[in-house]
Design a protein around this nucleic acid. Structure first.
Lengths: 138, 138
DNA sequence: GAAAAGCCTGAAGTGGCTTCAGGGTCAAGG
DNA sequence: CCTTGACCCTGAAGCCACTTCAGGCTTTTC
């Protein structure tokens, strides 16, 4: 199986596959006489593993850890649990931040409902106010 | 006012201030005889403006647009509104994604509540299942 | 035998900074 | 006068997870 087929069957770009190889996340594949990469079903699995982890917002460093954990039979459970707990905490924190940001953005947007009525829009006025070291209204 | 004082009074790192200057987001400051940067209150305002926009998740490119809009008196309202609407939509989309991610991560985490009882943890088993081109349980 | 599709490599670009190496400037103390 | 330490300077490289680019080789198809 050549790189193009691997790309099609996993939905991962060719360049990304080569990048994972350089980063040692994918084992070095065999080559044809013409120097084309030749992949086995094992590579398909590993690539899917990586993409699934990435879809869970794991960094490549964390994926590396998980691959290690997967390949080392014993004692990996605690590592994996810790990693997941940390990730869950991170995502929760980010969601909270974004909720606050949503409020702020909507309030700011509300400052300019009738764009035709002002020379300088309420939004820019508020943005400017914040440059005067006063606390933002929003 | 030297760069150190500007940094202290705005909470922005010195390197970041120099970076903003390179990126033309801050006007080029005067210099002392010893080639030290000398900032005016105008710089303080502009830097605060940038940081407030950044706290609203604007990219530097967007900040540049907002600075332009702020300095061009008329007709900026529509631009600013459009920018904010787009940003709001982006943040909403990201929050939705992260909510899904939260569910996934929590379900996956739930697969390994009693780490001592399994040789290979339920989490890794599930991660592995996903390499077999079966749909994830989680 | 020539075009088109597929593959190769190494280097550079992305954003928003941060870090590093290797210096120069300036005020206070000995 | 000299040194110490705080402060400042520049240009380049590093971070992450890719993406893009330039330039060239291989294989298939007509």
């Amino acid at each position: 199986m050549q790189i193009g087929e691997l790309a099609r069957s996993t939905g991962v770009k060719i360049e990304t596959i080569r990048y994972y190889e350089r980063e040692q996340l994918l084992p070095v594949p065999q080559r044809t006489d013409g120097n084309y990469r030749l992949y086995s079903p094992r590579h398909v699995e590993q690539l899917r593993f990586i993409r699934y982890c990435r879809s869970l917002d794991m960094s490549l460093e964390e994926v590396r850890l998980l691959i290690e954990a997967r390949d080392a039979p014993a004692g990996s459970c605690l590592t994996v649990n810790a990693l997941l707990d940390e990730k869950i905490a991170e995502v929760d924190a980010r969601v909270n931040e974004l909720h606050k940001l949503q409020d702020q953005l909507r309030q700011l947007r509300g400052l300019c409902r009738q764009p035709d009525q002002w020379e300088i829009c309420g939004i820019l006025a508020e943005l400017n106010r914040c440059t005067q070291s006063r606390k933002p209204v929003v």
